[in-house]
């Protein structure tokens, strides 16, 4: 099955290179965008990946993510453009949330759209998957965005066979999701079989964490703790990697990809269940996607 998925994703990536003049790949340092970059390397071998990489840096990333990012960009030999949320806050373009649950998740959308516009990217490839979340279950491979970067779920283009329509007006762009049909388990099985390098965060490690709303958050400078929230050293790993402020850890002793596969196969909670950005409301993802989130 993963061979079929690989072949489909490579087809979509080549389609982006063929249909767009200035395509970019959204790289978060998470396993899904690492997978997409791995597939992109395969798709264009022995040539270089014909995409500029974009990283939206919220300033609240895990240090392990940043380290991995810089190493992997060099390894792939691609150009990286960083959209800085801190810079946008300093310039007054966006306002930061306040309080215990403050997150830069929402304001990174504005920075992403700004980066796309500034560099005149006409397509942004992302690692979103349909099995992650109910709004993402309705996404296309080629997802049209209007001049404000917005997604209109009620007016999506029908997508038939493997004929992708990348036509757009000046100023509009596309989001492209080559791994739409992969499940979390597919991703892990493939990453393990291919021995794809990953940030250490995905594997079991010792970390000071504290509990909030049923989630285990990393003890760090970016999250103000309430008095009763006392951090304790635990053996944990991360199922998804986002900002330190919104990504929860899970207690786990899985320290290799194959141990993770065994764990994922028996897990009874979705991976987005460790993300407080999705827990804000029942339609948090749909609402953010409409505004231009990926």
């Amino acid at each position: 099955m993963t061979r079929l998925l690989e072949s489909e994703s490579i087809f979509v990536l080549r389609e982006v290179a063929a249909q767009f003049g200035n395509p970019a790949l959204l790289f978060s340092g998470g396993k899904d965008s690492i997978l997409v970059s791995w597939l992109a390397r395969k798709a264009f071998y022995p040539a270089r990946i014909p995409f500029t990489f974009i990283h939206i840096d919220t300033g609240h990333n895990f240090p392990e993510t940043m380290e991995f990012r810089d190493w992997w960009m060099k390894e792939l030999g691609v150009k990286l453009v960083v959209g800085s949320v801190q810079e946008a806050i300093d310039k007054g373009l966006v306002a930061e949330e306040k309080g215990y649950n403050a997150s830069r998740n929402l304001i990174q959308t504005a920075v992403l759209l700004d980066t796309i516009e500034k560099h005149r990217f006409d397509a942004a490839i992302g690692g979103a998957r349909r099995d992650e979340e109910k709004a993402r279950a309705k996404e296309r491979f080629f997802s049209h965005r209007d001049e404000f970067g917005q997604w209109d779920p009620r007016n999506q283009r029908p997508e038939l066979w493997n004929l992708f329509n990348g036509h757009k007006r000046q100023g509009e762009h596309f989001r492209v999701f080559p791994i739409s049909n992969w499940t979390e388990l597919d991703v892990w099985e493939y990453l393990a079989a291919e021995q794809v390098p990953l940030p250490s965060l995905y594997f079991a490690h010792q970390r000071a964490v504290f509990e909030r709303d049923g989630m285990l958050l990393a003890d760090c400078d970016y999250i103000p703790r309430r008095p009763h929230e006392v951090p304790a050293l635990e053996t944990v790993r991360f199922r998804t990697i986002g900002d330190m402020t919104c990504t929860g850890a899970v207690r786990s002793s899985a320290s290799t990809a194959s141990e993770i596969i065994r764990e994922v196969a028996t897990l009874r909670v979705t991976e987005r269940g460790t993300r407080s950005d999705d827990k804000r409301s029942e339609t948090a993802m749909e609402d953010r996607k409409k505004q231009g989130y990926f």
Binding site: R130, D131, K134, A135, A137, K138, P153, R154, Q156, S180, N181, T183, L185, T283, E286, D287
Partner: peptide, 21 residues
Amino acid sequence: DGLKSEREQGITIDVAYRYFS
């Protein structure tokens, strides 16, 4: 039924993809 507008109207508007094995 994934989308807010769908649940509000009690209908499915768009193709949704589901996965199981």
